[in-house]
């Protein structure tokens, strides 16, 4: 049977993708950030997941304003990196796992999570930047990815509590899949940041630290954080952090935090990153 062994939380700042694509990962500005992921690259090379279940959001790229699914599960055999206005990132095509996706889709709906099924979907920096941070610039991504896109752009995003419950349902889905697969779950986005209007540039490092602590040690409580708190304390785009709770819900109640990294800034954003293993 398939099993989930670990979770990765990771900001998906587009500038980090640009820095990696341009090979400027060692300068004064980006160097400290990429250094914070050196441990992670080693860790995932040893962990060797067979599949990554990757929770992210589309940033008005694959989804325009016509259709805005709250939870959309990728069920395709591959996902092309999208043009977000600057040309597509020069990174490998993301291979999917259609069979596992189809199984998860069925399981989630029967488990009362009425997700949208995406048989074709381009993927933006929300998905490709975390892969870059964890794997660098390989010829091919080392394993297939099952993407779950969450609406966090048009208010309201799903509640953290709902994301946490969805993570538990994702776990039930994966653990009922017949093939013996090792799955790592990524929760991406955040941390505190605001990209828009006159309060742009907001960073709240204390709040971010508390968020990480709660995520590890008391997710039941942390998943109760209300939208108004995210908006006010973590910035209007900080609400992406609800996606980390899908990842957390898919893990054991007890986890070992094997890595934590936090850095300000990348562009407009506080970069947060954690690796959690099932205890």
């Amino acid at each position: 049977m398939a099993r989930i062994t670990s979770g990765v939380a990771c900001s998906h700042v587009p500038a980090l993708g640009v820095a990696s694509d341009k090979g400027i990962t060692g300068d004064d500005y980006y160097g400290p950030i990429f250094k914070g992921f050196e441990f992670s690259k080693q860790w995932i090379a040893e962990e060797k997941p067979d599949v990554i279940f990757l929770v992210y959001n589309d940033h008005c790229t694959a989804f325009d304003a016509r259709v805005i699914p709250t939870f959309a599960l990728g069920c395709a055999s591959e996902y092309q990196p999208a043009d977000e206005g600057w040309g597509p990132r020069p990174v490998p095509v993301v291979k999917g796992h259609r069979d596992l996706s189809a199984h998860i889709a069925q399981s989630l709906v029967l488990d009362e999570f009425d997700i949208t099924i995406m048989n074709e979907m381009e993927v933006d920096h929300g998905l490709t930047v975390p892969l870059t941070m964890m794997f660098g610039q390989p010829e091919e991504w080392p394993c297939p990815v099952v993407p779950l896109a969450v609406n966090v752009v048009q208010y309201p995003a799903p509640h953290g509590r709902r994301c946490y419950a969805l993570g538990k349902a994702v776990r039930r889905a994966i653990e009922s899949y017949g093939e013996d697969l090792k799955v790592c779950v990524f929760g991406t986005g955040g941390m505190s940041h605001q990209l828009q209007h006159q309060r742009a540039g907001l960073i709240n490092a204390d709040w971010d630290a508390r968020f990480m602590d709660l995520l590890v040690n008391d997710p039941e409580f942390g998943s109760q954080i209300e939208h108004i708190e995210y908006l006010r304390e973590a910035g209007s785009e900080g609400i992406e952090l609800v996606m980390w709770y899908v990842m957390r819900g898919a893990l054991n109640e007890q986890v070992n935090e094997v890595h934590r990294f936090y850095h300000v800034p990348a562009s407009n954003t506080a970069v947060g990153h954690m690796i959690l293993e099932n205890a």
Partner: peptide
């Protein structure tokens, strides 16, 4: 969220 300064929440 109306009282958050310098912020426009993209609601429905």
């Amino acid at each position: 969220y109306d009282d958050i300064p310098g912020t426009i929440v993209f609601d429905s």
